[in-house]
Design a protein around this nucleic acid. Structure first.
Lengths: 375, 375
DNA sequence: CTGGGCTTTGAACACGTGTGCATAAAAATC
DNA sequence: GATTTTTATGCACACGTGTTCAAAGCCCAG
C-alpha cells in the first residue's frame, strides 16, 4: 500500500499530499532553478542545458505537474482552442462533420469548444460571444445563416472563420462547400440513364442556397437529356421526414405520377418513402427514390437508399486545416468546393414500363401509367 | 458609410480602428477610473456607484469590449468549462447525450470541450491530459472503461467526474446509468405477454456490465413466467449491425428457431433484421424483434422497431446537473439509476402459431414449432 | 465644529506562464 | 593569460482580471 510512492521521490511526495495545484514555481524550487528555466525546459527550448532540462522534466513528471494552458494563453495570447457552432449536434450530418474537425484538431493539439445554436438567433449570439470571451483562435460554423445576424461580431473578432455548407457566403469568411450543382446533376443523370423521364424533385423550402443549387443541377440534367421541365413535378418539404412525406403525397396526386423522385436530402427521401408505401406502391419497382447526404440511416432502410455522399468527416478535417493555415497567418483558398460521390444502391432501378411484366394489386398507379408524353 | 459610427462615441471610435484587443485598462482610461472599478462595475458589484457603473458599462458596450475569460480564469481559478470525453461523437446515442449536456451547460454559462477517444487508450490519455491542462471544472465521460487506464490521472485532478452509462463503476466518480435490468425485464415481459415462449437474446461481447445487466433482466422475465432458460437461444454480437446479423444467423440455425429476438441494442436488432430477411422470414409475422436505446433510426426502418427508450438528452442534462452541484461543493447522489421506457412499435406481435392461419414459402420454421417444452 | 460611520475609489498584489535583457560562467581565440 | 565569444541562467516585466486593504470623501449626530 505504501510502495506506490515513487522510490526516487523525496520532497515530491509531499506535493502529492498538498491540495494546492503544483505550479511552475514549485518545480523550480525542487529543481533549484528559476521558474524561467523550468518554463524553457518544458518547452524544449535550446537555451537550456540538456542535463538541467532532463532533470527538470523528470521532477515535473514525478510530481504530476501539468502546465496551465490558461496561464500560457494569457501570456502568449494564443489559446490553441477553436469554437465550433452547429445547429444541433444530434443531427447525424453535423455529428460526422464535428468528428472530422475534432480529429484534425486534436492531432494539432487544439481543443474544440462545441456549441449548439438550434437555429435560434439569440442563442447564436450567446455562443459566439462565449467564443469571443474565451479568445478562441478560430471558429467553424456549420450550416447556418451566418452574417445576417452576428456577422459584425465575428468580423470584429479578427480571427479566422470557416463556414461549412453555409447558406449565405460572407466576404469575411472562408468556406468549405459541397458541389451541390454537379452532384445533383450526376444523380439525376443516373435516373435518366435508367430510363426515367418523369423525374420529380422534392426541395427544401428552408434550404436557401443549397436547395437552389441542387435544383439547378436537376434542371441541367433534364436539359442535357432534352426532357421538358414540368413545374408540377417540383414540390417542397422542410428537409425532414415529415415534410418529405407531405410533399410526396402531393406528387402522388399528379397523374401520371413520377417514376423517380429525387429528394433534397436523405431525410426528405425517407419521408417520401413512407408516403409511397402508404399508397401501396413499391420502391424501386414502381418509383425510384434518391436522396442526398448519405446518412448512415440510408444503409439500413429497405431498400438501401441511392444518394450523394458528402465526405462529411473529410470536410470537417478540411475546415480545420483551413483554420490552421489561417491561424498561422498564411493564405488559404477562400471558397473550397468539394465533389460529392454518387452512391447507387437499391432504391433506384429502371421504371416499371421499360419492360413491363410485373403486376401488383394497386389501383392508383399502373392504370394511368402511359410513360412520358412527349418526345 | 460613415454614419454607423455611434454618434455618442468620441474616443471610442479610435478603439475600433486599433488592431489590439481592448482590455479592461482601456475602458478604465476612457471612463477615467481605475481598472479595479471597471472590474467591479462589469461584475455588477454593489461596491461601485450606480451612476459610475452605468457609465462604465455604456463605454464598454460601445467599444465592443468583452472580458477575457482566460484572464479571469487565471485570477479566480475557475474556468466555467467542462470536458466531455466520448467514444465517438458520430454515434447517435452519444450525440444526443452531448446535446443534453451542452444545452444544460450553456444555460449556466459553461462551455464544453468535446473530445473523441475512439476507445483508444493512448488517445484517452491525451484528451484527459488536455482537459487537465485546460483546468476544466469537471468532466463527463460516456460509455468507456474508465478507471482501468487513466483513473489515477482523473483522481489526481481533484475535480468532479460524472460517468454516463459507464461499464465499470469507479469509487471516485459519480454516475448516471440506465436501469438495464428493469428495462430489459419489462421488454421481455412484453414479448411473453404477446405469447412468445422461445425468446432469444443477442448480447454484446464488448458490453461488459450493461450486457450482463440486460441479460439478467431477460432471465428474470423468463423466470417470472416459468419459461425454461435455453442457453442455445443466447448468442453474442459486437453491438453493431454486422455482429447482430451474424449472431442472428446462428439463431436461425437452431431448430425450432426462436419466435422472438431481443437485441442488446438497436443496431444489433437491425443487423438481426437483415439476417431474418435474408432467410425469407418476416418481422413480426414470423419473428418478433426488439432492440434497446431507441435510436432515431428505429423509427424509419420497416417495421418500426420496438425498443427501450433511454432518455439520452435528459441523462446528459442530469450528468451536467450533477457536475454543477459538485462543482459548487455540494453533495450529489453518487449513483443515479434512470428508468428506461418501453416503446412498443410494429416489430413485435404475437407469435405465428398463436392462431395459425398464415403460410409462407419457408422451410425451416413452422414445421418444428412445438411451443415451450416444459411446464 | 468634531468625530465616527458609510460609500466609493485606487493602489498593490496575486494568479501561472512566457520572454527580453543583463549577467555570470564557461569555452574558444589570440 | 587576457580577451572575445558562446552558453546558461536569473531578474523583471508583461499578459488581463480579481481582490484585499487603506484611504479619501461624504453625511450626520452630537
Amino acid at each position: 500500500m505504501f510502495n506506490d510512492t515513487p522510490s526516487s521521490g523525496k520532497s515530491t511526495a509531499a506535493l502529492h499530499a498538498a491540495s494546492k495545484r503544483v505550479s511552475i514555481k514549485d518545480i523550480a524550487r525542487l529543481a533549484r532553478v528559476s521558474h524561467s528555466t523550468v518554463s524553457r525546459a518544458l518547452r524544449e527550448s535550446p537555451l537550456v542545458n540538456p542535463e538541467t532540462a532532463e532533470k527538470i522534466r523528470r521532477i515535473a513528471a514525478e510530481s504530476g505537474f501539468r502546465i496551465s494552458a490558461v496561464a500560457r494563453s494569457l501570456a502568449t495570447s494564443r489559446t490553441f482552442t477553436i469554437g465550433v457552432v452547429v445547429t444541433s449536434i444530434d443531427d447525424p450530418f453535423v455529428a460526422e462533420v464535428v468528428k472530422g474537425i475534432e480529429d484534425e484538431a486534436i492531432e494539432h493539439d487544439y481543443s474544440v469548444f462545441l456549441a449548439n445554436c438550434h437555429a435560434d438567433p439569440e442563442r447564436e449570439m450567446k455562443v459566439v460571444h462565449s467564443f469571443e470571451d474565451r479568445r478562441v483562435d478560430g471558429i467553424v460554423v456549420t450550416a447556418s445563416r451566418v452574417g445576417a445576424l452576428y456577422g459584425s461580431v465575428l468580423e470584429r473578432m479578427h480571427i479566422p472563420i470557416v463556414l461549412l455548407n453555409n447558406q449565405h457566403p460572407s466576404h469575411f469568411a472562408h468556406s468549405i462547400c459541397i458541389d451541390n450543382f454537379d452532384a445533383s446533376r450526376q444523380l439525376v443523370a443516373h435516373l435518366i440513364a435508367l430510363g426515367h423521364r418523369r423525374i420529380a424533385y422534392i426541395g427544401d423550402r428552408f434550404g436557401h442556397g443549397s436547395d437552389s443549387e441542387r435544383f439547378s443541377g436537376y434542371r441541367a440534367a433534364l436539359d442535357e437529356a432534352d426532357i421538358l421541365f414540368q413545374p408540377d413535378l417540383v414540390v417542397h418539404g422542410d428537409g425532414k421526414a415529415e415534410g418529405g412525406k407531405e410533399a410526396m403525397a402531393k406528387l402522388l396526386a399528379v397523374h401520371p405520377h413520377p417514376t423517380a423522385v429525387f429528394g433534397y436530402n436523405d431525410m426528405t427521401a425517407i419521408g417520401a418513402l413512407k408516403a409511397i408505401r402508404a399508397r401501396g406502391l413499391r420502391v424501386p419497382a414502381d418509383i425510384s427514390l434518391a436522396g442526398f447526404d448519405d446518412l448512415p440511416l440510408g444503409l439500413y432502410i429497405d431498400p438501401p437508399l441511392t444518394t450523394v455522399r458528402q465526405p462529411k468527416q473529410q470536410m470537417g478535417r478540411m475546415a480545420m486545416q483551413s483554420l490552421l493555415t489561417l491561424i498561422e497567418g498564411n493564405q488559404a483558398e477562400q471558397n473550397v468546393r468539394v465533389a460529392g460521390e454518387l452512391i447507387i444502391r437499391q432504391s433506384t432501378a429502371a421504371p416499371p414500363d421499360s419492360h413491363s411484366k410485373e403486376n401488383h394489386p394497386c389501383n392508383s398507379s399502373s392504370a394511368h401509367k402511359t410513360g412520358h408524353k412527349r418526345k
